[in-house]
Design a protein around this nucleic acid. Sequence first.
DNA 1: AACGCTTACGTGAGTCGTAATAATC
DNA 2: GATTATTACGACTCACGTAAGCGTT
Lengths: 206, 206
Amino acid sequence: MLDIWTLRVLVEVADQGSFSGAASKLSMTQPAVSRQIAGMERRVGVSLFRRVPRGVHLTTAGEVAVGQAREILARMQALEARLGSFTDLETGHLRLSAFPSANTSFMPDAIRRMNEAYPGVTQSLVRIEPGEALSAIRDGTVDLGLVTAWELHPNLVAAKYSPPAWTIRSRPSKAWSSFRCWTKNCWSVCRPGIDSRISPGSDCAS
Amino acid sequence: MLDIWTLRVLVEVADQGSFSGAASKLSMTQPAVSRQIAGMERRVGVSLFRRVPRGVHLTTAGEVAVGQAREILARMQALEARLGSFTDLETGHLRLSAFPSANTSFMPDAIRRMNEAYPGVTQSLVRIEPGEALSAIRDGTVDLGLVTAWELHPNLVAAKYSPPAWTIRSRPSKAWSSFRCWTKNCWSVCRPGIDSRISPGSDCAS
DNA sequence: AACGCTTACGTGAGTCGTAATAATC
DNA sequence: GATTATTACGACTCACGTAAGCGTT
């Protein structure tokens, strides 16, 4: 059985036309993409890309694979969205945390928008020591936190310099289910079940 | 992004109605299945199964998930089959190996059927030391080998006692792309690209 | 020299199996 | 007591990032 993440890498390489471009988009390194594609080609026994001087080109088998991969990825996203709709935000309490400067900039507006969207949900702003936000989410101390890009992943700091910079990395770790870009340096990380119901405001780059 | 293997476990649990039953079918242990489902429930934030005394029952969210998972799995299988058709067995050479008793029982008939199906492909029977078959396939020394169940995976020995015993385990390791049951104790393991083009004869249980 | 893909190697995350525990019939 | 799900723990596999190598423009 092939892997979903492998398909994600496959279509990104096809879209970008090069391994390095796809790596940048996916917040990975070139060698990682190279290995992913090489591994998939070895498993299916067919060459999917023809390596050309300026990047890669799809082979006939690659065209077929990319087409089917797009459908599978779309269905997987639909499944996740459908399951996400089962978690009700009708009532309950949400524990938020943010780093100091975000507490005075993004947080007030985000809380205001949340109150409008989900009137039944109360929030509390939890104070978290710097560098402890991710572990607090993993441990269940808070439900959603705003963290700096470097705190989320060192690689994002490097990735942000090459446009398009603030794409959502599609392969979250087991510890958090999803994260989302507010600005180049400010990302939101959610506990499973919350996901992307709290979106950045219009004043954030997207 | 959810994992394909997780979906495979999900539908198997739904079909069997219990974690232990699914574990047996998938050649896994009970705790492994339990962790897989628990992890998926944590990621999507919804409970997929209701634990009842005699096993588990699907929740409403679980019903939706299983339905979509079936479609995704079917499309993934279709993709692999489609890509497999690109590897031509029109010409070439196939290096086979088997353990001693299989050399005199299954192999002669299998080679005869291969000659009929793929007249352009020549074969050679490679002598492999006992216990070296899997590593030989991984290293590329041979293309297809018949191995004993215990050699393939210790767990299969335990699994074979509970019918239906000889189902194809759907989660091959990175080293080999697929394997297939000929009898309870005899399995074929293929190098990537060959896959299941060489099928067991009618004299084998299936 | 610059750009892009590949390979080698050490490291960290994730999953498995075994064993022990709890709960239900 | 038998069956089933969960938790703890050690071991192993896999994928990543860093660094070095190779070919093309």
